[in-house]
Design a protein around this nucleic acid. Structure first.
Lengths: 154, 154
DNA sequence: TATTGTTATACTCTATAACTATA
DNA sequence: TATAGTTATAGAGTATAACAATA
């Protein structure tokens, strides 16, 4: 075996890192992200792309700036991301008559079909981690994570 | 103000993303990481570098492979990361007599002094987020995050 | 033969500055 | 003047393959 596993070895004393929220978040996110990528690996869809497709399904017709802001992606980085989805035939930009600068974003028919298939796989992925926490634990976790990103709790 | 804020707008319906563990982790980690970077910005130390310094303090003399594995960093990526710390005079590689291939990693004196200063700033950073959760909430969060990355809970 | 550290490299993510066409 | 989208570009983070020295 020539590859170095990403999973951290727990035999080493990492000092105060073990009590740092940011360090724990990184490790957890790495684990979840790896499983997510493995889950959608054959689909050639990355996490950010999946999140865009799902927003378009839930909120069709939004402008690029709205979608990218909702996902915390800078508009400048959103362009090539969405270009890839459009090139794959999964989503499309449409003109907005009220403002000729802006563009409304939509799933294509194929995008909707693909997303439905992705939902199944993502649900299985999510179930794997929910099983590690319990349903109640997942609810608690989501509440705590929401607080972390909300300055109102500072 | 010409920059697009990373903070996601909550006015948009993001569909099932709002109940996805991975999505919540990403948002929380972005918030914590931004504060961490702002906290250590003037020090010119990035999160991964800080984590290496702290491991060297807690566990001096480890081999590169041990440190990188403990932090979930591939050895191939660890090399330039540690090179930068060494170039900054904060850490050093020392020969290991028992195995001439391996190298033991240590803080320099200056590294120890610097790390002590960083500890103060990082403690303030950590306190900001602990305040959003409460001490108990932080404990619960760390427990749940540990479960996410531990297949034993699958 | 296997392991430690290393180099080279590539792809993704994220960030800033500057442009265009509209408003 | 300001805004929506875009381009170019640069810096991190992360991945694989292959190598030299040593075990």
């Amino acid at each position: 075996m020539s590859h170095t596993n990403l999973a951290p070895s727990s035999a080493v004393d990492v000092g105060s890192l073990s009590r740092l929220i940011g360090f724990a978040l990184r490790r957890a996110q790495t684990a979840v992200l790896q499983d997510f990528s493995a889950t959608l690996g054959e689909e050639n869809i990355r996490p950010a792309q999946y999140s865009v497709l799902e927003v378009l399904r839930a909120s069709p017709g939004l402008r690029q700036a709205q979608v990218s802001a909702a996902l915390g992606i800078k508009t400048t980085n959103f362009v090539p991301l969405f270009d890839a989805l459009e090139a794959a035939g999964l989503a499309e930009r449409r003109a907005i008559s009220a403002d000729r600068r802006a563009k409304g974003l939509f799933l294509s028919e194929r995008g909707a079909t693909t997303l439905a298939r992705l939902h199944t796989k993502v649900a299985a992925h999510e179930a794997r981690f929910t099983a590690r926490l319990g349903e109640d634990g997942k609810g608690v976790l989501l509440g705590l994570l929401a607080r972390l990103q909300d300055p109102a709790f500072g």
